[in-house]
Design a binder for these strands. Structure first.
Lengths: 228, 228
DNA sequence: TAGATTGTTAATCGATTAACAATC
DNA sequence: TAGATTGTTAATCGATTAACAATC
């Protein structure tokens, strides 16, 4: 009963923060109710998709003819995304990227609290970033156990990623957000999200290539047209 | 003819860097040929999927019974992903995240060359990160035009993202890699890739929640079992 | 009431997987 | 040759979209 499978698609999840952002804008504008069609139009989505997505996230129901209550939608989506229940996390690898994430204010509103950064580089130990200390990686395992931390952010630059991952999991970490360029593997009972920069860049590059190609063709055609 | 539509799925693109990484490992081990089955097994994918993906990226063909030439595959995938044809990019917003990307060595091998960072904060101007200067945002438009830069990396922290985007596009930028938390819109003839942290975190959080829930149930069941 | 909008069922579309003839 | 592996066609699966009865 309680053990229902979460078969909500990743695509649905990806859209939720966009709904949330748009709804908050509407709330600021003083709007009380909104229809799936209005949301779909604004975000360039299909209205049926919006209805289906929302039906998976919300407890409250929309009212026929009126639409959804903006404030209830916001509450439900924030609950759905776990923004209300703050999760502690450790950050492993406090280089530039790690420090950028440590000082990023936005995470608070997403329900993420980085409790400390960890590194092996002596010159970084003791440094404070936005009130968060950088500690020696030695203390990682004991800290995770003591504070019962379940999430780790991996911002180490190089190939020790898998080894570090294994250590983290052995200490009790159940979710890893991997910003390193290594593809790491984890057991089934650990959640993993890779920030795959190489893939992102590849997609963008290839789209750019295509755009430049089309423009070159158009230019050629335009020239031909002018000549004839 | 030349204007064939690129209908290669995003999913295929996302897998390409993984194939590449694996193939390079195999090359280092001295392996000359590899089958789709071997790749699929290693990366936990379906062999038919691997074959289909590769057929879209490669010029050379695999040999029945033998498999694909590792070195040819690597060449073709790198070409496909545009790693060989280096693209210049400007980076807008040289805070911690921006600096982290500026000093990230990996981009070179992905064919990305950040020529300079730009910011409005006086204390950052003139600073050098891995040999790349941070310049005043004033100079952005003229620099883009002068060097004919087509790609921009957006690492500005706050809400001027859309305005900055518009300026970039007006100067000739055709591809934007957006690390800001704002959802920006661009015309059809500009490529856009959002690094959506909020969405990533939401997915990870919800998976974690599910895992902890399952473990709680298992624990309860185990306790019951011990009692009876 | 008439009309807008919900929630949901059925149809469509696209991506993944299975099956298999071709081939070395 | 026999068997492994390719490239590709057909089947399956899942996500998106369209359609529509229910309802306020």
């Amino acid at each position: 009963m309680t053990n229902e499978t979460v078969s909500i698609s990743l695509a649905t999840f990806q859209r939720m923060p966009r709904y949330l952002k748009f709804l908050k804008e509407k709330q600021t504008e003083g709007q009380k109710y909104i229809s799936s069609v209005a949301i779909a139009d604004a975000l360039l989505l299909n209205a049926a998709l919006v209805k289906k997505d929302l039906s998976q996230a919300i407890i409250s129901e929309g009212k026929p003819k009126v639409g959804y209550s903006v404030s209830e939608l916001i509450c439900d989506i924030e609950e759905f995304l776990g923004y209300n229940n703050t999760k502690d996390a450790v950050l492993v690898g406090a280089g530039k990227l790690g420090q950028a994430l440590m000082e990023y204010k936005g995470f608070e509103s997403y329900g993420l609290n980085i409790i400390a950064g960890f590194d092996v580089r002596e010159e970084l130990i003791g440094k404070e970033i936005s009130g968060k200390k950088i500690l020696h990686a030695d203390k990682l395992a004991s800290m995770i156990k003591k504070l019962d931390v379940k999430m780790a952010i991996l911002t180490i630059p190089q190939d020790s990623a898998q080894q570090t991952t294994d250590t983290l999991i052995a200490s009790g970490i159940k979710a890893i957000w991997n910003f390193s360029s290594c593809h790491i593997t984890v057991p089934d009972n650990v959640a993993l999200k890779n920030e795959n920069m190489a893939a992102s860049l590849a997609i963008l590059s290839s789209q750019l290539k295509e755009i430049l190609k089309i423009e070159a063709i158009q230019e050629k055609t335009a020239k031909k047209g002018a000549q004839s």
